[in-house]
Simulated assay, not measured.
Amino acid sequence: MTERATPIGAASAPEPFESLLRTVAEMNTPAGFKAELIRGKIVVSPFSKLRCLRRMRALREQLQAHAPEGHIAETAPFLFRFSAAERAYGPDLFVADEAAFEEDGRHADGAALSLVAEFASVSTKDADWNEKLDVYGSLVPVYLVVDMQDSEITCFSDPSSHGYRTRRTVSFGETLAVPAPFDFTLDLSVF
Rank of each mutant, 00 (worst) to 15 (best):
P30W: 03
A31F: 07
A31R: 10
G32C: 07
F33Y: 13
K34F: 06
E36Q: 14
E36Y: 05
E36T: 00
I38K: 07
I38S: 00
G40W: 08
K41I: 02
K41S: 14
K41D: 13
I42A: 08
V43Q: 12
V43I: 12
V44E: 08
V44Q: 10
V44R: 05
V44K: 04
P46G: 02
P46Y: 08
F47Q: 08
F47K: 11
F47T: 10
L50P: 09
R51K: 12
R51W: 11
C52Y: 03
R55P: 00
R55C: 05
R57W: 04
L59G: 05
L59S: 05
E61S: 10
Q62G: 11
L63P: 07
L63N: 00
A65F: 06
H66G: 00
H66D: 04
A67G: 11
P68D: 03
P68A: 08
E69P: 01
H71F: 14
H71P: 01
H71D: 14
A73R: 00
A73D: 01
A73N: 01
A73L: 06
A73I: 07
T75S: 12
A76K: 03
A76R: 09
A76V: 08
P77Q: 13
P77C: 07
F78W: 14
F78Y: 13
L79S: 13
F80E: 08
F82C: 07
S83D: 15
S83E: 15
S83G: 03
A84D: 15
E86S: 15
E86N: 12
